Amino acid sequence: MKALMGLLLLFVSGTVLAGDAIYTGFFSNKALDGYDTVAYFTEGKPVKGDSAYITEYKGADWYFSSKQNRELFVKNPDKYTPQYGGFCAWAVAAKNDRAPGDPLQWTIVKDSDNTPKLYLNYDKKIKQRWEQDISGFITMGDKNWPALLVN
């Protein structure tokens, strides 16, 4: 029975992930597992959001550590939304697939316009792979991501 439930969960989970623009996990609607996406840019570290400061964007609930951070996000959500919707950047690039992004395994990279972008990775080991060729993985990820949005 456990094996059957595991297979069912795997099938349903893959179906739920297909086409989602923002990674929220299987049993939650929280983007970045409730971490404040603006804080990565303003404080240079992950900061847990507070349930008093929430907004909805692209079907996900975004939590913030302050009213000011929530207002910054609402004014320009694309500036603060993690690339590839918070899915693992390495998986999107190297495997042309989706995997959960861990808000504690993150990198901010400036693009060609000197605009900082937030990328998440699955875990510490995958982040180390990502760090071996960040610019190459971003090039591949940017190419792969649009098709992953519709599949």
Rank of each mutant, 00 (worst) to 15 (best):
G59I: 08
D111G: 06
V16M: 14
G85L: 13
I138S: 06
I54T: 14
D133W: 03
P77C: 11
I22F: 08
W145A: 12
K127N: 14
G14Q: 14
A52G: 08
L120T: 11
F11M: 15
Y84C: 09
A21N: 09
A39D: 06
S112Y: 10
D142H: 07
K75Y: 07
K127P: 04
I126S: 03
K95A: 13
Y57T: 04
N69G: 05
K125Y: 10
D113V: 03
P116A: 00
G86R: 00
P103Q: 01
Q128S: 14
V12T: 14
K2S: 12
K58V: 03
G86K: 10
A99I: 03
V16L: 15
F26M: 15
N121S: 05
L7H: 01
A147Y: 05
C88H: 01
G44P: 13
W106N: 05
A31P: 04
T115Q: 15
G34I: 12
N114Q: 13
N144C: 04
Y122F: 15
N121E: 05
V150S: 15
K79M: 07
F87E: 02
F41M: 08
L17C: 09
D102L: 04
N29P: 02
W106V: 00
G85T: 02
N96A: 14
E56D: 15
Y84P: 07
L7A: 13
G6C: 04
G59Y: 04
